[in-house]
Design a binder for these strands. Structure first.
Lengths: 222, 222, 222, 222
DNA sequence: TATGAATGAGTCTTCATTCAT
DNA sequence: CATGAATGAAGACTCATTCAT
């Protein structure tokens, strides 16, 4: 009547889209909960429906399959973690490289801890589900490890990082982080350490390892 | 006279037992293959039957369930890995601690590499299957990490290992090893590094980290 | 205004419930038929599906198991039979005890005959299925026999029923009724006798036995 | 050597047959036990093997199927019961008809009680197993009822038995006996009554019913 | 858009029977 | 005769997905 039907239509559409997105979120939330509780395989679509308090058909209105929901959750996690990692900046007006790394680790810890359920899903459930998921996971970890590798290479060029097999060491770094966080999130005493201490310990381990001396010699080395 | 048929009977029994054990092995082998290919959940008993070329009933003659086969395979792996780790010996007539650790790492690598399929199962499939499996796995990794922790504590008492949060660092060590091995066994170029080089890189990483300098200071440290 | 959609909703719900109950009935009907034809054990869920012309999943939407259907049918029968039996009334304005008993027998016959299939199931299939069913059956027959016993005791107190071992005689009464009805319902000439004649013959047998004389003496009696 | 090979052969054959028959008996015994414990359907061939302590193949050397064993047991029971029933003798030098009937009932009770397991099988398990069994059972009970009917007819001709619908009443008699014996053999207090008292009560019931008076009139009778 | 009844392919498991030794 | 390993048909039940309302 007033501003024309076009406007009305647009508004309606927008509101519809918003509602749609809310519903999606509601389902994702429910799925996240039940997946992290009982695992992907041990949880049926019915479990999600019950948790989300929606009907069977509604679910398939928003997701093409149970798998798709899981994939979506995984992608959320990928995005958040990727977002937590910042490239190391060089220059006079930025914090030291170590401090920047510390920031990265802290942010990752924050993301993982504030998404405990999703993290557990990522670290436990998502592994070995099927070939497709595995590939997706591999790709993600591959990207992460590539980022680490890039940082290490940069560090090497600056003389901060020692000579080493970068791809391998990248995965060492990645692995130590994953395992520690999994233990922290699933273990009985999840907050024995503050996140700052945790970050520090992780960084220490990755930078200086466990040795108390630098002069140790590996056996069989010329 | 009387020893005749008794002997025969014994022999027959022995041969029967052997055949039984062979069949078991055959089934385990087939299961190992299909599990590592398609994952525990995506592989049905039928897949195992097909691979093993046996009838349905035969399978259940040797294993009470699909689960039991998987459990068996897992236990095999547990045993082999546990067997590969030797306690660090102290004394005048033994190799240096580092060399002993190197031996441990080498042996673990050997076990994992000579059981590629099982290892993949252990590192990928076994996670998040169900509560029971998860507990078993946790227990196993818990044992491993406890062994590492013990070694670290010994090292500390000898002044070889620096002060650190032992439980956390143990999981760092464990995690770096797991991740590297998973990548090596599932990656495209599985043998880019010799096992000796691999062991050396892993040890280096765990002992001295990535840093080129010992004097680095972590930020926020007093 | 507000009562509009609420009413609609209610109506829809009601219709849904009705449909649900119809489906249930459809399945029960089919099961009743196949059970009475081939027996519980020789009839698979597939048989029921075929008879009911529904899909496998639909069946399990209405019943948790094949057993449950059977149990339901049994309970139906229990209820109907129990409902057919009326306590004997005493007083000036009620029919004679014999007429009341006659009424009971007639009603039981009616129930059994109008549920031929269920009766056959009750009298033939339900026995020896498994411990649980057996217990249920025993309990039911126990209740029936207790009712008979009560009636007999009442009769005794009124001088109508002779001295006898009540529990035993109750089972005699029950047994004669069961056997006769089973024969009538499964035999070749099922309606040789009218239900009234049948009831009369049964009552006669139970009241006066087969003897033509009252003075007969049992041997070995003092 | 001495009496010729023919004799030896015969002897050997005979002994073989005897051994064969012993084996059969052993299996039947075991089957009887497990059948009466867990019921026909809930007991597998393996159960019989275990109880009989024979191998799988051996079983099929003596019986073509699990069913056949059951059938055999049933036939045993048929034979024993049939054997317990004697035709009523008329004449000056025989006990009274009642005493003869009493003898029959006593012998039947004896047979049933000394074959408790088989009896339970006959009365509970054998019903509703499958069409074939049912037919066999029906035939058996039909024979029994025919025998009863014959006796009743004889009694009628002698003026001892009242006018009644003989086929129906025969099944009444049969049913009361079956039910009472089933209760006695499966109930908690199996020997509350001596066999003599039991026989007497059964006979009393069948001969004179429950009524204390002969003058009772059935309702609706002209 | 939301619903939930209906579907049926697929899963694990059992067990009576056969047969090579 | 005796054995027991091997068989495979058949069973009950699950659950992701579809579709008429």
């Amino acid at each position: 009547m007033s501003a024309g039907p076009g406007r009305e239509n647009e508004k309606r559409k927008e509101r519809a889209l918003q509602r749609r997105s809310q519903r999606r979120e509601q389902i994702l939330l429910a799925a996240k909960k039940v997946f992290s509780l009982k695992g992907y395989h041990d949880c049926s679509v019915s479990d999600i429906l019950e948790e989300a308090e929606i009907a069977r058909g509604t679910f398939y209105l928003y997701f093409p399959s149970k798998r798709a929901v899981f994939e979506d959750l995984l992608d959320q996690m990928f995005a958040q973690i990727t977002g937590a990692v910042r490239r190391i900046q060089l220059g006079p007006d930025v914090p030291s490289e170590l401090e920047q790394m510390n920031g990265n680790v802290l942010r990752i810890i924050d993301v993982l801890e504030s998404n405990r359920e999703l993290t557990i899903i990522l670290l436990r459930e998502a592994v070995g589900l099927d070939a497709d998921f595995d590939q997706k996971l591999s790709a993600f970890y591959g990207r992460l490890s590539a980022m680490i590798e890039g940082a290490l290479r940069l560090g090497q060029s600056m003389g901060l990082i020692r000579e080493c097999h970068l791809p391998l060491v990248s995965y060492c770094v990645l692995g130590s982080l994953k395992e520690v966080m999994l233990q922290r999130l699933t273990g009985k005493s999840p907050r024995a350490l503050s996140r700052e201490m945790l970050a520090q310990e992780i960084l220490r381990f990755n930078f200086w390892g466990i040795s108390s001396r630098e002069s140790d010699q590996l056996p069989g080395r010329t």
